[in-house]
Simulated scan of single mutants.
Amino acid sequence: MDNIGKRIKHIRKINNMIQTEFAGLIGIGQGTLSEIEQGKLKPSIDTLYELSKHFQIDLNWLVMGAFECMNLKEYEYELLRKTRELDLDCQNEVAEFIEFK
């Protein structure tokens, strides 16, 4: 992933959404989303906020690809993202399992 459009497309793909559905959820048109994903248009701050809100996406990663700067591999980022979606009890279970391993 080398730009914000590719990261946004990645978010859409891992959530198994088509452009129309994804665009509607974040409050933009399908054509706008297509241009963002292709790198022809930069997303607005409102769009970034909606992405962050709906998908619990870290804005540093979304805007700058920050996890790449931290040397996280894509699967490591996905593990972190999925862990954040769990409730606190489940997060604690995951942490205990990791400690056990």
Rank of each mutant, 00 (worst) to 15 (best):
His10Pro: 02
Ile14Arg: 03
Gln38Glu: 09
Lys9Cys: 03
Phe67Lys: 12
Gly65Ala: 14
Phe100Asn: 12
Asp87Asn: 15
Ala23Gln: 05
Ile14Phe: 02
Arg7Phe: 02
Gln91Ala: 05
Arg84Thr: 13
Arg84Ser: 13
Glu76Ile: 00
Leu51Arg: 01
Ala95Val: 04
Val63Leu: 13
Gly27Thr: 05
Phe55Gly: 13
Arg84Gln: 14
Leu48Lys: 04
Arg12Met: 01
Val94Thr: 06
Met1Ala: 14
Ala95Trp: 01
Met70Phe: 05
Tyr49Arg: 06
Ala23Arg: 05
Phe22Trp: 02
Asn15Asp: 10
Asp58Phe: 04
Lys101Asn: 14
Glu93Ala: 11
Leu79Cys: 07
Cys69Ile: 10
Asn3Glu: 06
Cys90Ile: 06
Met64Arg: 08
Asn60Cys: 10
Phe55Tyr: 03
Ile45Met: 12
Ile8Gly: 01
Glu99Tyr: 13
Glu96Asp: 14
Glu37His: 01
Ile4Glu: 00
Asn71Cys: 09
Glu50Ala: 11
Asn71Leu: 08
Gly29Pro: 00
Met64Asp: 02
Glu21Thr: 11
Tyr49Cys: 01
Ser44Glu: 02
Asp46Arg: 03
Ile36His: 08
Ile98Arg: 07
Glu85His: 09
Glu21Ala: 07
Val94Leu: 09
Asp58Asn: 13
Asp87Phe: 11
Ile98Gly: 11
Lys40Phe: 07
Thr83Gly: 04
Met64Tyr: 14
Asn60Phe: 05
Glu68Cys: 13
Gly31Met: 02
Gln91Met: 09
Glu35Ala: 07
Leu80Asp: 07
Gly5Thr: 02
Lys101Ser: 10
Lys13Gln: 12
Phe97Lys: 06
Gly27Ala: 01
Ile18Thr: 14
Ile18Asn: 11
Gln30Phe: 00
Gly31Thr: 04
Gly31Arg: 01
Ile45Val: 11
Arg81His: 15
Ser34Ile: 00
Leu86Asn: 03
Glu37Arg: 01
Asp58Ala: 10
Leu79Gln: 11
Ser34Val: 01
Tyr75Arg: 14
Arg12Ser: 00
Ile14Pro: 03
Glu76Val: 00
Arg84Ala: 12
Gly39Leu: 09
Glu99Lys: 10
Met17Asp: 08
Ile26Phe: 02
Val94Cys: 06
Leu25Asp: 02
Lys40Pro: 00
Arg81Gly: 14
